[in-house]
Design a binder for these strands. Structure first.
Lengths: 186, 186
DNA sequence: GCGTATTATTGGACTCCGTCTAACAATACG
DNA sequence: CGTATTGTTAGACGGAGTCCAATAATACGC
């Protein structure tokens, strides 16, 4: 079944090299060509592994968001929607491991990526809300209310994530932070 | 005091032409050069009026966000922070007039801008939250709680705005929608 | 060992965005 | 009529992201 030329690199290798360069000379000044050269691969290959330069930071989180989305899409409407959502969120994101994103959040100044980071962070917050809102509506909530609550949950996730990364990304405490952030909404 | 060459066009003229083209052939397929040519001006001039192609949609809303930010930055901490924020939000956004953005929200499919729109919309939601959160912290709220509530308020604004635009952007009802959306948070 | 199907890598050409700069045009004012 | 001011313009430039055809490295059947 399986044949074909083997991979010369991996997403992880590329992400590592990219982060090094971002730290050394900043995000803007680092071109995709730089990253590729550092890993010893062509520019084209970079785009075989990542859709864009910024995606280097986001594949881990995006995976978790995808998980949350699938989970809630399959969940049955409950009379305790808040609890279902909170559990799903904790299930999805407490497994989030320190990666390029955590590094970027801590070193955003050195990398000179504050604007990019907020932009992309905002997009992820939106996606989290978009994963939650349909479930709330299925539990019978008003459309407007569902969107507002979903935004609140998403805000809680992102706030927890940021606090966790900025505190050093010790593995244990993300779940605690998520609990605290979600606890605000009760 | 005043001299110099007069303006050949205006932001409004450019935005109008841009929206026409977006409707005709979609956002992606419309280049900045197209827009400039349609208004009878050079590509360089487009960038004298707008920082980017996408900014065409957002100048109106960004102005309102700037107002909210300034207003809350100057507001005194109150024992009723929720009321202060809600009033500030209504004050800032109920004056929002139908513009390119409303058009884009309604015709997002024809323009083929769903991804761009959500991305940029998310960024604005983030900015609204960023305007609100510092005020909540000044009223003594925990950092995490402030971020969560700010995200909720921002979500309410954006949800109201979308509902308003999608319903046809009749002027009167935006304030109603804002009241309803903000009312969810009490 | 030898062809073959499969999969990855590669270089290069391409479009477009956004930046920059130096030259040029149109106005007000003295 | 000269000068300062402000806007417009063409053009070059670098980087992101797309696309494609050519090529390289593997597994497998023979």
């Amino acid at each position: 079944m399986s044949g074909g030329r083997p991979h010369a690199v991996s997403r992880e290798l590329i992400a590592e090299a990219a982060c090094e360069l971002f730290l050394e000379q900043g995000y803007e000044r680092t071109t995709v060509a730089h990253i590729a050269r550092r890993v010893g691969v062509s520019r084209s290959s970079f785009f075989n592994y990542f859709e864009s330069k910024s995606e280097v930071f986001w594949s881990g989180l995006d995976e978790r968001i995808g998980f949350l989305d699938a989970f809630l899409a399959a969940a049955c409407p409950s009379s305790q929607p808040a609890a279902v959502v909170a559990d799903a969120v904790r299930e999805a994101f407490s497994r989030f491991a320190p990666d390029a994103l955590a590094l970027a959040l801590v070193n955003s100044d050195a990398m000179g990526i504050v604007p990019e980071l907020t932009q992309e962070m905002a997009t992820r917050q939106w996606r989290i809300a978009t994963a939650i809102s349909p479930y709330l509506r299925r539990t019978g909530q008003d459309a407007l209310a569902a969107e507002v609550y979903a935004a609140a949950y998403a805000g809680a996730v992102i706030a927890a994530l940021r606090a966790w990364a900025l505190a050093g990304a010790g593995r244990e405490r993300l779940d605690d932070l998520l609990r605290r952030a979600l606890g605000v909404l009760r």
